[in-house]
């Protein structure tokens, strides 16, 4: 093995050296172009949001956020997230479990359907619910007879948001579950654990980082969703307006400080999500790297340092 390695490595390094041996000015130009692009399209707009939000001072910023309608939009957005995230956590884990552990007729169809919300325009997603539950929709007459309002009300926003964010937890958990296999669950089953005990003691701890990752993404999308929510919400200020919708309305009314103040909150959410995502990604990576260590000798006596030395 070791005898065969050097020539391979030297070929590899020669090729790598060839790639890296561009002239310095070419390297600087390429790096500079990439940085300029990032600055122009990401950093400047990001800074601009805060610049505009604080254009008339911190007092105006706070007043804009404390504004009744803005505040109600913030509250509604949080409420939506609080409802949608646990729902998609449950659906996502259940769907991932089903798809990772069982073979059944129509499995590939279900897999494709899970991705549907991503492949359909969010506006269409919203429209689906209007066509189902709107006044002219299939269930419209039944709902209005019973005094239930879904479209242009909170339930509609919850439905549309749940639909749009469904794949986030399911996809992430499915990948983790498929990578891990089901031997631990079988071991717990053989030791006498019931289905719920297996889920609680074995499966959830195993997939916890994958779940957290999915939940973070799901939360960010649930709070930031515009298209689908815009169609079903009706834009009733103080009642069915979420933060992204509020930003649009404020902007259209030329209330720039208000628009950017609310937008700054969503931006902060995005930044916090990115940071959390990075932290969790690192934890997931660490968990995956914990590969078995190649065997060391059996300790027939008790050398406590033996296992430590084996790592």
């Amino acid at each position: 093995m070791s005898a065969a390695l050097p020539p391979i490595r030297s070929v590899e390094s020669r090729r790598l050296a060839g790639v890296a041996s561009e002239r310095p000015w070419v390297r600087w130009l390429l790096t500079g172009a990439a940085l300029a692009f990032v600055a122009a399209f990401l950093l400047v707009p990001l800074a601009l949001v805060f610049f505009e939000a604080f254009a008339k001072g911190p007092a105006a910023y706070l007043a804009a956020i404390a504004d009744d309608e803005a505040f109600s939009a913030i509250r509604l957005t949080l409420l939506i997230a609080v409802i949608v995230v646990p729902l998609n956590f449950t659906f996502g884990v259940a769907a991932a479990w089903l798809l990772a552990r069982y073979d059944f007729f129509g499995k590939s169809l279900l897999l494709a359907l899970i991705d549907l919300p991503f492949s359909v325009s969010p506006v269409i997603s919203g429209l689906i619910f209007v066509l189902l539950f709107g006044a002219q929709g299939w269930f419209g007459p039944f709902l209005s007879d019973h005094g239930i309002s879904i479209i242009f009300a909170v339930p509609g926003i919850v439905l549309a948001t749940t639909f749009v964010t469904f794949p986030l937890v399911a996809r992430e958990v499915l990948a983790v579950m498929q990578a891990q296999g089901g031997a631990e669950e079988e071991a717990a089953f053989m030791l006498g654990a019931s289905g719920w005990q297996i889920l609680w003691h074995v499966t959830l701890p195993k997939i916890r980082w994958g779940v957290l990752y999915g939940v973070i993404l799901c939360n960010a999308r649930a709070m930031g969703e515009f298209g689908a929510v815009s169609v079903v919400s009706g834009h009733v200020r103080g009642q069915t307006n979420t933060m992204p919708l509020e930003v649009e309305i404020l902007y259209n009314e030329y209330r720039f400080v208000g628009a950017f103040a609310v937008a700054s909150l969503l931006t902060l959410l995005a930044v916090a999500t990115l940071v959390l995502k990075k932290v969790v990604e690192r934890a997931v990576g660490r968990q995956r790297r914990e590969a078995p260590i190649a065997g060391d000798r059996i300790a027939f006596a008790l050398p406590a340092e033996e296992a430590g030395g084996g790592q």
Partner: peptide, 18 residues
Amino acid sequence: KLPGYGGRYPSQLSGGQR
């Protein structure tokens, strides 16, 4: 033959010990 190993985690053991 692994007395005293109770407090460890599986990732701290070799394949044979696991």
